[in-house]
């Protein structure tokens, strides 16, 4: 099963190979110049933009190779004569096929490996590794262990038609209308919904988590730069889905955060009494449609 290249193939093969290598190198260098979202406001976001860059760098030679083949065929393998002529009856070439499949398998496995390790890495594991579970199973919040909990700021994202509110468990469950996060402190986000499915998307934070009724969906994030971020809903949730956004999310220093949260506790003290006490999830009453 040795790779056999017919003499007639050789000029085409060499030409293509040389062009492919050159163009791919240029292409890879070019795409690596791009600054990929979601940028670096959080550790997780930074991991994601690196993954995006890696994927693009890997996709570039594939894209260039196939497009080059298509264009090359269109130029060099087009029929020159007016009448129809049949091409050489080539039925296949096992080594080439095996090589193609082998190479694509390696590329894919490499990608999956990178994906899994990024997921499992200290940073992103925290982002998506913690299980979100239905609370009905008996109060498991899917959150970190008790020891870790002290370290991570607990923030609950409560979605409903058509806005998000945030409850800070460590601050008496105070409910706010904007999300503020302290710098350099790991945050454990508990995303839940009061009515239907929404999706909490904080673009710059590199977080997206569906808000399901009756479910505590846990994601982790660690801000590493101050600044503001945008929150949007990323799951169609009815009439005002498009308007379900907030541009006033902020990552602030720990001291600014402390002043802010104290202010919130004060401002919302009255409302706080009417709000149900902090829980992993809430079911509005009545629970049954039509009853």
């Amino acid at each position: 099963m040795s790779l056999r290249i017919e003499p007639a193939d050789r000029p085409h093969a060499i030409r293509l190979l040389v062009m492919w290598v050159i163009l791919s190198i240029i292409g890879i260098i070019a795409v690596l110049q791009i600054h990929y979202p979601p940028y670096d406001q959080t550790i997780q976001g930074e991991d994601q933009s690196k993954t995006l860059a890696l994927l693009t760098a890997m996709a570039t030679p594939v894209f260039i190779g196939v497009v080059m083949m298509v264009i090359y065929s269109a130029i060099y393998f087009r029929r020159a004569t007016a009448e129809l002529v049949d091409g050489p009856p080539m039925l296949g070439n096992t080594p080439v096929q095996v090589a193609w499949i082998g190479i694509s398998a390696i590329a894919v496995l490499f990608l999956a490996f990178v994906g899994v390790t990024t997921l499992a890495s200290d940073n992103v594991a925290k982002l998506v590794n913690a299980p979100g579970r239905s609370i009905n199973t008996g109060g498991q919040t899917g959150s970190a262990t008790a020891a870790e909990r002290g370290k991570e700021l607990q923030v609950q994202v409560v979605a409903q038609q058509w806005y998000f509110t945030y409850r800070y468990a460590d601050y008496g469950g105070v409910e706010t209308t904007h999300l503020y996060l302290p710098l350099d402190r790991p945050v454990e986000l508990h995303v839940t919904s009061l009515d239907i499915i929404h999706s909490f998307w904080a673009y710059e934070l590199g977080v997206k988590a569906d808000a399901n009724p009756g479910v505590d969906n846990v994601f982790h994030v660690t801000p590493q730069k101050t600044g503001s971020f945008t929150v949007r809903c990323a799951e169609l949730c009815g009439l005002w889905h498009g308007q379900m956004s907030d541009t006033e999310g902020k990552v602030v220093s720990q001291s600014d955060f402390d002043t802010w949260i104290a202010q919130q506790q004060q401002d919302y003290a009255v409302i706080q009494k009417a709000v149900p006490s902090y829980a992993p999830f809430y079911f509005p009453e009545p629970t049954v449609k039509g009853s």
Binding site: V66, S73, R79, A80, T81, M90, N93, V96
Partner: peptide
């Protein structure tokens, strides 16, 4: 692969 291979050294119409 199969389509590109078929076009290889063909007389494409």
């Amino acid at each position: 692969l199969v389509t590109l291979g078929t076009m290889w050294r063909a007389r494409i119409w």
